[in-house]
Write a protein that binds this DNA or RNA. Structure first.
Lengths: 140, 140
DNA sequence: TTCTCCAAAGATAATGATTCTCTTTTAGAA
DNA sequence: TTCTAAAAGAGAATCATTATCTTTGGAGAA
C-alpha cells in the first residue's frame, strides 16, 4: 500500500502522521498474516531499528482505537492484528497457525437472512464472523 | 456436574484422577463463562488453597490435550477455556466480555450444506464456528 | 492391605507478552 | 521560525504462561 494512502488514512482519523505509525501499519499490511507485535517488530527492525517495543504496542492500540486495524481472535494468549477492516471471515490453519481473510458475500447474505428471522434470546447481534478451521494447502 | 462423572471422564481418557484435576475441571464448568486461568484460580482457592498457578496451567493443558476442555478464541492476549466440547458457536458480549455458548442445529445444517457445494481454494475445512458479537441483555 | 513407582503436583524461577512511567523528540499549527 | 502538546524512546514493572527441580500421592501389583 502506498505511503500516501497510509498518510491519508491517518489524517482522516485525526492522527499525527509519524514515521513509526506508517512503518507499523505498513508492516501489518505487508506481513499479510495477522501478525503479532513480535512479528511486526521483527519486520520493521531492519529499516527502523529504534522503534521500541512499547511504541509498537502503543501505536497498535492507537490504530485499533481509530479503526485502522482490528484485532483477530486466537486462542494463543497473544494479540494478532488485521489490516483489513471491511467485513470478512477468517481461515485458521491448524498446521501453520496462518490466518487468512475469507470474503463471501453470498454467504454473508445467507447468514444475515437467517438471523433476520431467528433472533437470539437476550442478545443483540452486532456482528457475525465465521471461524473456519482447517488446513491450508500449497502455502507456507 | 457430579464428581463421579468427572472421574469417569478422566478415567476414560486414561488420566489419573487427582483432586486438582477434578477441582479445576469443575471450576471451568461452574464458572460457566469460558474462564481464564486466573478466574479458575480465584474460584478454587477457597476449597483448594494449595493448588499452585503452575499446576492450574499444567492441568488445563492436560485437559485440553485430552479433549476434555477446549480453548476459546478471543482477542485479549490471554487464554480462556470451554468445558463444552460438543460442536457449538459463541456469543461474545462486547460490554461485559462474557462469552456464551450458542447451539443451533438448523444453522449448522445450512452452513454445512453451503460448504458442501462451495469449496475454498487451497483450504481443507475441518470445522466452522460462528463468532457472534453483540450485547447481552439482562445478564451479568 | 501394603508397597512401589513414576505421573502429577508444589514451589518458584524464568520467560514472554503487554502495560506503565518518565524523559526526550517531533509533527504540525500558528 | 517558534512553540506546544502529542508521540516516541527507554526501560522498568506487571501480567500471563512455561520451565525446572523436588516432593507427594494415585493406582496398580503383590
Amino acid at each position: 500500500m502506498p505511503v500516501n494512502q497510509i498518510r491519508q488514512k491517518l489524517k482522516q482519523k485525526g492522527l499525527r502522521v509519524t514515521p513509526q505509525r506508517i512503518a507499523i501499519y505498513e508492516a501489518v499490511v505487508k506481513i499479510n498474516n495477522h501478525p503479532t507485535a513480535e512479528n511486526i517488530i521483527d519486520h520493521i527492525k531492519t529499516n527502523h531499528p529504534n522503534i521500541s517495543t512499547g511504541t509498537v504496542y502503543k501505536v497498535l492500540d492507537s490504530l485499533v482505537e481509530n479503526n485502522l486495524l482490528k484485532k483477530v481472535k486466537t486462542e494463543k494468549g497473544l494479540m494478532r492484528y488485521d489490516a483489513d477492516i471491511s467485513h470478512h471471515h477468517h481461515l485458521y490453519c491448524t498446521e501453520t497457525d496462518r490466518i487468512e481473510d475469507y470474503k463471501d458475500e453470498h454467504l454473508d447474505k445467507l447468514i444475515s437472512k437467517y438471523f433476520e428471522k431467528k433472533s437470539i434470546k437476550d442478545f443483540r447481534i452486532q456482528d457475525i464472523k465465521l471461524q473456519i478451521t482447517g488446513k491450508l494447502i500449497n502455502k507456507t
